[in-house]
Design a protein around this nucleic acid. Sequence first.
DNA 1: TATGAATGAGGATTCATTCAT
DNA 2: CATGAATGAATCCTCATTCAT
Lengths: 212, 212, 212, 212
Amino acid sequence: MPRISKERQQDRRNSILAAGRMVLSARGFNDAAISAIAAEAGVSDGLVYRYFTNKRDLLIAVLADFYEGIIDNLEVILDQYDTFEERIRAIVYEHIARFASDKEMCELFLTEIRVSNNYRETEIFRLNRRYTSIVVRTAQDGLARGEMNPAIGPRLLRDMLFGGIEHFAWRHIGRGVAIDVDEGASKIAEVLLHGVCARSTPPNPPKAHTGK
Amino acid sequence: MPRISKERQQDRRNSILAAGRMVLSARGFNDAAISAIAAEAGVSDGLVYRYFTNKRDLLIAVLADFYEGIIDNLEVILDQYDTFEERIRAIVYEHIARFASDKEMCELFLTEIRVSNNYRETEIFRLNRRYTSIVVRTAQDGLARGEMNPAIGPRLLRDMLFGGIEHFAWRHIGRGVAIDVDEGASKIAEVLLHGVCARSTPPNPPKAHTGK
Amino acid sequence: MPRISKERQQDRRNSILAAGRMVLSARGFNDAAISAIAAEAGVSDGLVYRYFTNKRDLLIAVLADFYEGIIDNLEVILDQYDTFEERIRAIVYEHIARFASDKEMCELFLTEIRVSNNYRETEIFRLNRRYTSIVVRTAQDGLARGEMNPAIGPRLLRDMLFGGIEHFAWRHIGRGVAIDVDEGASKIAEVLLHGVCARSTPPNPPKAHTGK
Amino acid sequence: MPRISKERQQDRRNSILAAGRMVLSARGFNDAAISAIAAEAGVSDGLVYRYFTNKRDLLIAVLADFYEGIIDNLEVILDQYDTFEERIRAIVYEHIARFASDKEMCELFLTEIRVSNNYRETEIFRLNRRYTSIVVRTAQDGLARGEMNPAIGPRLLRDMLFGGIEHFAWRHIGRGVAIDVDEGASKIAEVLLHGVCARSTPPNPPKAHTGK
DNA sequence: TATGAATGAGGATTCATTCAT
DNA sequence: CATGAATGAATCCTCATTCAT
């Protein structure tokens, strides 16, 4: 029979998680000291190790927490759209917005996790799969509806979408320039959907997806 | 009056550079010890610091060396093509091939340099600009020739091209799966040029760019 | 008024003691975690501290428990013999057998307790005295009966007996080689009783003491 | 071409070795901090690791240094004696003297090295073999000369000699009582050579070996 | 010029022990 | 009585960089 309630334990864990997110974001994995995280959370160094196996495990928990939030968010949003094009526009918009709002989490993922040797055995890998598979499913749906070119596989669309946004966003982030999410999303979606070549007859005026 | 000739100095520098590339590629920045690089080059630890300010400076020099090679190469190749589409196909092909052949250099750039705070003050930043500006110029040329959609800026094409390839290539690299450069390049170029939407009239059979 | 009966308390204490013996034997003092002992005993960490002052106190209790058993055993056995020589042979036999059967307890005593600064203030010191004093009394008896050389004090016999056996046994233990208790005891007793010099007239055929 | 002479390097190594011996003696292996040893030697922490692989390697070097000294010493002394009995007396005397003069080194060996799992792969194991093999050779010589009882193997003599002395000496050391080396050696040798049984005809008055 | 010996900062992790509940 | 969450001290080792020679 535990001396402290489950709620209290969750509080502790959440404190450490929040402190971890803050310090890891600010300093990066190597320069974030456990003692700094513990101090930020208002607990002892040792307690961090009651809730997390080691420093890397804490990093993974921090990112997993982040990922779970954005996956749920994206799924809810996608439910509001039907056509392939609308959905792609929505995903692009949301993903850029994510980079804009959570630069450091994205950076942590790109520089610490995705590079690591055992990334593919990681919970983050599975969460990333869930996240990116939203695009894959959207693509499969688009293929079924005849709205997507069957010569392009769903996975290539996924790579182009996430890779393109990553590059686009990184450039702004690196310069400390705010991203114009609306415009960026609109143009990137345009490229993904119709390419960069000049088009004789622009079919419809591109309907921008806006965040609300 | 220098005790050793300029040529000898260049030799020394090149030895260290080559050793640095080898060890940094194999071990990554953090795990590559200066002493290991010096040993590989057959010089003392101290001498490394006569030719390079510090470890990071050496990393930058190694990557600069790499970049210079691939920029020249890409420029030579591009001269062989005239149309916007052909050029884009060629760039995509070459860039994927680069990932396939120099995985570690790409990784070093992505994980160590591009992320760093002072990346934009770096020689690598300038070289990366030169490299990616090839795409920008190609795009500008395409616009002038009316072959590219003016609604898409050259820089967005650049981001989509490099970001998409990076994601595509990383996936293969991470899994240790060899990249099918021909097929990957063909499809990625297709997305960039014409998008993923179903097309009523496939304009021309896509002419694959092959490496030779 | 205690909430749990004396019997229950004894049970608890004995559980912890048994778990302590098991874990300390298997891991050694430093590598035996209190939490592991508590888990093995099926109690909480904190409860260990209700029955024992600290980890070292538990170690001492475990060894005391062990010592009490072997002292009783040795005294019972000695009662079956009358002559000095027979008794020495019996003690040697039993002590070697003890090393063979309880290697880890012996090791714990030799490496953790006997070395410690406050060994002589320890209960183990008193128990060890009781155990080794069996030899001293046997020697005094032998002197009284004229069967032992008066130039050799009882305590020196004690040192030679226990020290010699310890070295002999350790060698086997360290190599993981089973001890031939019968042969070892016979020879060690022979050296103690008659020395290693060549003897002109072997007095009697040495009567080996065997375990039953 | 080294910047500092071999002699200087030896000095450094010897400083660290001496400091290691001092601190390890005083504190024991676990409580001796590398930083304390480095400070005692007047060098930086890091330099310790240029001369010794790790803390345990330093411990082993300290003990090896000690062992080499006493082996040479014992061999020189033994050359002065011819008969089996004289030699055994000399070895006993010297070994007790060693315990008396270098209690901590003996303790370090007994409590840190001999107990360790990989003792038998250690340089100390080989040195200990060399040291104790002096007794074995002396015994073999005694057997050849007909001065030792062939029923007692050389190795048993060795165990009884070193084990008996260890116990005898430890008792005095533990109590902080100075050992009477002359008397202890004389009596221990007597037991080893002729046993503890009453002898009808003491052959010769035992000639005590005295230290000079 | 070249050497390589010397420096020294920096941090994750364990676990005996306590004490609020 | 019993729990088990919380504490926090304590340390080995690496390696980029310097500088006396």
